[in-house]
Design a protein around this nucleic acid. Sequence first.
DNA 1: AATTATTTTTAGATTAATCTAAATTTATTT
DNA 2: AAATAAATTTAGATTAATCTAAAAATAATT
Lengths: 227, 227
Amino acid sequence: MTIAEEDYLKVILKLELAQEELHARVTTNQVAEVIQTKPSSVTDMLKRLKEKSLVDYIKYKGIKLTGAGRKQALCLIRRHRLWETFLVEKLGLSWKTVHPVAEQLEHVHSDELLERLDEFLGHPAFDPHGEPIPNGEGKLPGCDGELMTTVKAGKNYTFMGIKEPTDTLLSYLDKIKLNIGSIFHVQDVEAYNGSVELEMGGKVCFLTYDVANKLVVKVNEKHENKN
Amino acid sequence: MTIAEEDYLKVILKLELAQEELHARVTTNQVAEVIQTKPSSVTDMLKRLKEKSLVDYIKYKGIKLTGAGRKQALCLIRRHRLWETFLVEKLGLSWKTVHPVAEQLEHVHSDELLERLDEFLGHPAFDPHGEPIPNGEGKLPGCDGELMTTVKAGKNYTFMGIKEPTDTLLSYLDKIKLNIGSIFHVQDVEAYNGSVELEMGGKVCFLTYDVANKLVVKVNEKHENKN
DNA sequence: AATTATTTTTAGATTAATCTAAATTTATTT
DNA sequence: AAATAAATTTAGATTAATCTAAAAATAATT
């Protein structure tokens, strides 16, 4: 498995997940756009990936990952997000700068390294950008989470991840010190405009509906009766 | 700088350092032997490296690194050894297995990553195999160390590194729990056969001349009057 | 439905890194 | 010093990954 092949698989998976209409096939041009290459180069690569049974590719009809291809792609995303977590949590790099470095690290092949790294980081479920980290079996966590727009006043929650992370949103969360893993208490949900009032480590913060609607949270049963 | 180019530079530096007669030029066949490739492939690569002013290559006459080439090669060795240290010290992998993983990690390009990793590891001077880690300026540490065959009874030393590490020697040192960084007290040096008796954390151990002659140590002024 | 536009694929080149086989240069030995 | 052996280089191919330009297929529009 070459670096180029791995890059293509990852891009195809991301396009499949982002696809508007479910089960629609990813197109040659979509891939070329993301990889920043010519469609003809994509066609060449697709033939090679098909040869290896990593994609189901039909001329002029688009692409779909096979089971094996999907598994590989999820492994790459797992590696990428674990490395990003390491770079930010352990080495203190900024989440703004780690992507290109993780882009290189994700191509390092070693199952044992990956396992140990995961353990070293405490089996994190989300990376510093709030993206879920697939587990060893390729399953994404936090699928049982809910958006912060559905929380109930009086309950406690853990902040799990971000739905569609953008740099501006991440910067904002940095500023108000709302970090992944934070536990908070919902003081109030404003029925009028859906804004949420939280209490977190003694400090209070307000979130608009638009922000709350990007944040994935999980009820924290254990801390239910904290206040 | 491609991965292949980096691999060649590293091999050439290692051959230069291991050269019997100083200033002798590294040969095409030597490189081919180490890289496990054909001499003709080496010739091709040497032309490319010469083009980039990384080696001083004269047809039929052999190779020498230029200043720039040497700097690059030292950076690669630095990366390799820092990663090996990370893998063993932080992730708990065995020094027996880390080489091929570090071989991949050393090709990750990021100055900031390297700086932070070095800091995270506490600026180590030797890797888990006892090899010295070049610093940011490409200088090798422990050049002021001495071999354990020159120690004086009654003094305290720190175990810095290993002269020519082999798996069997490393395993032996593991077994007698003599680790890099260990501080020990020299109880006695046997004039008859040069064997050395050490005391280390209350335990005593004997080393033959042959073993002691591979171990790099440094007088530990601060602990001079421990006993 | 016919035409136009868009998407996708093919054909043919290019570059890095490798190979084999043959030619050349240097080293070694009679 | 001539002959032989060894090391090195060249010439010509090969593979992965890319490109450009042209051809073919699909989609959109009149």
